[in-house]
Design a protein around this nucleic acid. Structure first.
Lengths: 127, 127
DNA sequence: GTGGTTGCAAAATATTTGCACACTC
DNA sequence: GAGTGTGCAAATATTTTGCAACCAC
């Protein structure tokens, strides 16, 4: 992934890097200052290209359509990056339980949601 | 949250409960079999009502608009349920590092994404 | 010229809102 | 009759696509 790091460095030098967790609209607004002729469609196309190339990824694997959480036991999610399926896994099974309450910065922790990202059994074997 | 549990039980008894992580469209399709006259708008309104009431919550706190992840260091997210802001926190700071590789069910773990849900410092103090 | 990229506009998808009607008390 | 909830339809927001023009080689 050395090429990707080089590329990121170039973007930072040319003022094209956008920090944080921008939405496509925010990327568009900021990049437009450097490249006024760019269109929102190009931003979307380029983001998809970059995500596929591994230059960065999506902060949330299941945007685009809301998903309702009906399992009210403590659990986490196995999210397949191929078929986008969501499978529940009990919280104990992956050995994660962080503390609730106050964090040093003043953030009040109410719960943890862990997405375990990877490839599900079905997508690993060529159908 | 006893009332919420009772309510869930009633929904299951009447065949209105939808398992898994359905999208609003999927909820609509399934509930329509029991209540054919229902509309998609009512499903959306009711989901919002239920989420506010704590009967269930959203599987992903930042759907609705894609967010690009530009931080390529291992880290997790502090997500404020009031202002929806996303703040990065180094992976080490919350003491979470699960194993990568194969899970018993055949799922191949590539990375973990932890959302720490709660209220940020800014939203805790009444503006 | 060929191949790949872009901008524009339109289409497709997802979600929210306004409003009048129906239902309960 | 007041208050609440619903369906319909329109409005908004988000994302994708088709296509012709453009650029580098």
């Amino acid at each position: 992934m050395h090429a990707a790091e080089q590329f990121r460095a170039i973007c930072e030098q040319t003022g094209l890097a956008v920090p944080g967790h921008p939405s496509p609209e925010e990327v568009y607004a900021q990049v437009k200052e450097e490249i006024p002729s760019i269109s929102l469609a190009t931003v979307y196309k380029t983001i998809h290209l970059f995500v596929q190339s591994g230059i960065f990824h999506e902060a949330s694997p299941h945007h685009g359509s809301m998903r309702v959480e009906t399992n009210h036991e403590p659990h986490h999610h196995l999210v397949c990056r191929v078929c986008k399926s969501i499978t529940d896994i009990p919280a104990g099974q992956i050995g994660f339980g962080g503390p609730l309450g106050d964090l040093p910065g003043g953030f009040l922790v109410e719960r943890y949601a862990v997405d375990v990202l990877g490839i599900c059994a079905g997508c690993r074997k060529p159908a």
